[in-house]
Design a binder for these strands. Structure first.
Lengths: 356, 356
DNA sequence: ACGCGTTGATTAATCGTTTAATCAACGCGT
DNA sequence: ACGCGTTGATTAAACGATTAATCAACGCGT
């Protein structure tokens, strides 16, 4: 079934019309000089025969497969659907297919996954690295979506600005003691988000960072984070750097009898699928994945087709992998206010429900 | 960069050794008759030159692209990471790459997405339909992963049995009034799960089905489901047909001051990523996606390579799309007991924490 | 009438692999 | 010594598209 087997090819169209294959090829691709009338006839019979060009033949001749690779070292990441959908859409608009590769969390398999893609002849690849793993040269243009502070990053959400948005939101609500919840201090993305939060707050607001990884070293995976104690210590807001951790915080607080948002506010990041359906619906920050994907794909396609803008990192332009760059490398994140955030301990009002 | 451009090809290896390309090809693929010694020499120089076979050349000659398509009409489905990961892994083990296609929820785009894949020359495709949409013929072998009650289904989790497992778990805990929570009565999967639950319960256990879609028609998306009232009515367990709905139920109950699992049990389906981290950790049912994917891919690859077992639906074997079949079509689901389920209203004990 | 540029189409080579057909030795039985 | 099967390697023809080079008319100015 590969690539139009048994289906009509250029030859069949050519003989059907009594012309040469070259003419047919030219007519269908607007290349050489073919009379308008003949183009018309070729087009119609091609359509009538249900002609579909063979990617294999074209790839062999042109050296382009029309396929991009998408490498997700951590496919279990709940952001994956958003990313895959956006990348697939942007790629298909640009006329490319998307081949997925997964290293199943294992860093060593990332290299293998990449080489699998290369063997399949991808023209370029989009890599969403986890925790700043180094990208070995792939021998083709590569776009990296991570965060601005990662060297070689092509484009990403402006996690720093996103953090600042959340911080201002909580500060304006009146919170003065905020607990920041992250998973791993090794993640560039999480560090940027936390950095952004802190940067937007002056000395009147106290913050403290809680790393889940640290706590789970003792308590085991899924253990309680001790947030009820934090409430006792005066924290009125809990800003997690991912909706996953926000969810954990939310349920832990509720279970401990802390009412949200009345007694404590909880915010997340990424607007994952469950953010609107939990109760109270989660205030969070959404990344514009569609725009990010479009920028990444555009940069990648430029590098592929023109050898155009972007081959950064100063070394060898033609060989090795070329990390592509884009003019816009930070896409703003958007605050989504729902019910999980509100002013700290106001007697009993039932507040803030803009979005959702 | 497509397909080993500029890289060494068979010809280069052949001239380097002073043999013919055919011999090299035969040596590398164990086909024709080549002396063991020569095979050895060819292998080593091929490796030394970093030879990677050109998929394009091979595809053109053999009519096989070595690529499968994965069609997800509802990519926003949180199950997607599990599915994509399992399919990608099974496919790569079988020597195939996976091209993703997404119809962004729109049913009309499903056909377009499929034809995009066909144009790219996929050898076959795996389709995970949403709500029993019909699959137009794709012109290549197709494996369908949905549920047993869907006509043409190739393989899937045994949702019915999964439902029965959950039902027995709750019954054995002592629950006698269980609320079943589903999203849409149009979903075959959800109906099978609910059917399975009911089938395992005798008349001593009362059940009632709550369809979220119906409630949201009035209350709007994300509205409260009125579960606190249900508790008043004597329901002690809430069995959702997806972790997403279980999560919604859990947070709604907790927010209403109903303690879980002391005053009410909540269970889900699918063991999505947040199931272990919410508090209390969610009791749920896990599907063995790895096995399902392996069965689907095996059946698909059989159909592709041998024209082997499976071309169902009685009509034309060679043309049209061929829905493949597998010997095993139902893969059992596995109960994962965590903290969100327990016996109904036992005075004050702090119970059941097997798994997690 | 001759040369020349333009238009419109064809010829043929090429991409890299697979594979059927062919061919050259060589050993061996008769 | 001749024929014959076997082994080990080569030749050459595909697969389907792209594209540079070529070629046949034709119109037109001088």
């Amino acid at each position: 079934m590969a690539t139009t087997r048994s289906g009509p090819n250029l030859n069949r169209i050519a003989t059907a019309l009594g012309v040469s294959v070259a003419t047919v090829s030219n007519a269908l691709s607007n290349k050489g000089r073919v009379s308008a009338e003949l183009v018309e006839r070729i087009r119609t019979t091609a359509a009538a025969l249900g002609y579909v060009p063979s990617q294999a033949g074209r790839a062999l001749r042109t050296g382009r497969s029309g396929v991009l690779g998408l490498v997700l070292p951590d496919i279990a990441n709940p952001l994956f659907p958003q990313i895959a959908q956006a990348i697939e859409y942007a790629a298909s608009v640009a006329g490319y297919g998307v081949l997925i590769a997964d290293s199943r969390g294992d860093i060593g398999m990332q290299t293998e996954a990449i080489s699998r893609l290369v063997e399949r002849g991808v023209d370029g690849m989009v890599i969403v690295p986890r925790r700043g793993t180094r990208i070995a040269d792939a021998g083709c243009p590569v776009a990296v979506i991570d965060t601005s502070s990662t060297p070689g990053n092509t484009v990403s959400a402006d996690h720093w600005q996103g953090g600042a948005e959340i911080a201002r939101h909580l500060r304006d609500l009146g919170h003065r003691k905020i607990l920041l919840i992250g998973a791993s201090s090794a993640s560039n993305v999480q560090n940027d988000r936390i950095g952004g939060i802190k940067s937007a707050l002056d000395a009147t607001v106290k913050t403290e960072v809680l790393w889940i990884e640290k706590i789970e070293e003792r308590g085991g995976p899924g253990c309680l984070l001790g947030l009820a104690d934090k409430v006792q210590q005066g924290f009125t807001a809990f800003a997690a750097v991912s909706d996953l951790h926000a969810l954990r915080a939310l349920t832990e607080l509720q279970r401990a009898g802390v009412s949200v948002p009345d007694s404590a506010s909880v915010t997340g990041f990424d607007d994952l699928i469950w953010a609107p359906v939990v109760s109270p619906a989660l205030t969070t920050i959404r990344m514009d994945m569609a725009t990010i994907a479009e920028i990444a794909i555009t940069a990648l396609v430029n590098a592929i087709e023109k050898g155009g803008p972007g081959e950064a990192l100063a070394d060898e332009p033609p060989p090795g992998s070329r990390l592509v760059t884009a003019e816009r490398s930070r896409v703003p994140m958007q605050l989504v206010v729902r019910q999980s955030s509100g002013p700290p301990r106001p007697a009993k009002t039932n507040l803030s429900a803009e979005n959702s």
